[in-house]
Design a protein around this nucleic acid. Sequence first.
DNA 1: GTGAAAGCGCTAACAG
DNA 2: CTGTTAGCGCTTTCAC
Lengths: 352, 352
Amino acid sequence: MTRRSRMPEHPTILDVARRAGVSKSTVSNVIRSSQGVTDEKRQAVALAIEELGYRPNAMARQLVQRRTKIIGAVVGDLANPFHAEMAKLVEQQSAARGYATMFSNTLGDNATEAAGIEVMLEHRVAGIIFLAFSARDRPLRASLNGRVPVVFIGCSEPWADSVVAADRRGARLATEHLLGLGHRRIAFLVNELVEKSGHRSRLAGYRDALARARVRPGPMLRWTEDGPQVAGNGRPTPIEEIVLGPERVTAVFSSNDLGAIRLLDSVERAGIPVPGKLSVVGYDGAAVTALSRIALTTVAQPKEDLVLAGTETLVARVAGLSGPPRRQVVDVTLLVRGSTAPPSRSNGGRRN
Amino acid sequence: MTRRSRMPEHPTILDVARRAGVSKSTVSNVIRSSQGVTDEKRQAVALAIEELGYRPNAMARQLVQRRTKIIGAVVGDLANPFHAEMAKLVEQQSAARGYATMFSNTLGDNATEAAGIEVMLEHRVAGIIFLAFSARDRPLRASLNGRVPVVFIGCSEPWADSVVAADRRGARLATEHLLGLGHRRIAFLVNELVEKSGHRSRLAGYRDALARARVRPGPMLRWTEDGPQVAGNGRPTPIEEIVLGPERVTAVFSSNDLGAIRLLDSVERAGIPVPGKLSVVGYDGAAVTALSRIALTTVAQPKEDLVLAGTETLVARVAGLSGPPRRQVVDVTLLVRGSTAPPSRSNGGRRN
DNA sequence: GTGAAAGCGCTAACAG
DNA sequence: CTGTTAGCGCTTTCAC
């Protein structure tokens, strides 16, 4: 037992070389399955690798190659089922392309997001996929732009590639569905997890539909910790007031499913039946909306398509593809379920 | 414009040194905020870093230090809300301790899991947190054991640290709740996402309660793609048959919430009311179970406690703590909600 | 206090 | 076809 004979925690390429009786580079050649290596030596190396439990050190390789096989994924909130489903797909697609995935959960918080991105940049990730983006600050954008390939999925920024759903059209479909049912007082609900780019489009789609039908927009609702709040109003507004008060809202279009589900919950706890007294439409198409108990009418984003296109684009950029930012749009589907119905006679259905 | 003046994509410590007019090591000292550096030089370095947009290369640092600041997290299925919530907490806790998180979604699949772990090992992650574990194969376990700190959260293996909920007690509580309500035909439902260690404990707790009450165990149900299936039976059993058939099951204890929610859904689609004709209890305490529309009675695992203890333990091991595997147990809470009620007169409540 | 020098484990020319 | 060599960007002794 000489000192050297102690099995190292992580054997190196040199340990393998010694054991196999070849040189470092031959081992390297075998590992990277490069062409010219005798079968004999190849086998010897393979054996040594097996016996030693050798595993190439990705850090070392990535340092010399000056590029990693890690994709950074910035996600809004894993506790939001839709986000989790998207994150799952991103991990899956990245893994399928040989990339490890480093996640950062931002909770819509700017500082958390910045810190997460910083870590990714220090790790020299090959690229970053944004499933949500809130950065207001220039510095971050500056350090991102040009330094690392970036693609936005389900959200977008003019300076990078993006794959988005046809949000404006989706919101229009949702609103028209409500309009078609006879609703005339339709509120728009948003919360902190809806990225601003998506928000704008969805709001625009909602307004499009109303304008086309010559219906006055309903109140803008924002979900806060204490419940829904009418925009421009300092305090939370009890849901009863929104539905039964002077506004007489008969339907709500929520710009994401989570908001719609929360709303459903608080509305029914307040004794207001859905869709009896209030119709609700969501946006995203989270799996949970399909449960019979929830049965939320929603606009489904094609999750697989989004992630597939996004990953593909990112990988292409990593591989060196150049050119101006590319924006891909995928279509959405309105899924009509049990949370929407014609307004009840008592508080809706009349002209405004 | 000499060749050298081109701003490199990623400036190195040497670029900073040149710009600040100091040596490499001084820059390094500043970056790591080590003691002996003149304020003057420190400022000069800070300025150069700022101007260059320098960001230390984590790969290089980790290579020389021979340890990374990356924690690997193995998760079962991000589409399972409980798993996603746990994953979120892991990322949060890791980030709070200065670690980046590398995720691997296994879908309960052995090969996927093995591949994910392999990638983590090649990246020399500081430690691995298993939120789910399915590996049957020895080789994997061997390469894990001793090479990298491992902690299991919500599942366990005798050869490594673990933090688990009091699963056996939890299952007993759930079953006793059902028993207390008057149920005598209580089925046990499991699916592919319940790790085997948790499964064993939960099944034991269920049996404990029944044995203590001298009630015969109900059928073992396994959720398959086509719906619930009675164990030992080759084909899927229609839910109607389970409830209305000879077994006359009046309640089901599902060993995870996802299974319970799926069951709820298929049962009600079949026209069998819950809890009218069938009571359902879940396990995990996923946030979605609290929605009024779902209102699933469940056994809540203390998610924060689990992850906190797990992360703490892992970090301690990374820091060099030695000693035999440590098993921590945290308590659970039965949350009684609307999915359970006394059995209806027509098909339950009698002795068996 | 600061700089010079020696690697961390690997890849990628480049000779033999 | 195989071995030798020169780094990748950083930390870390060790002299000055």
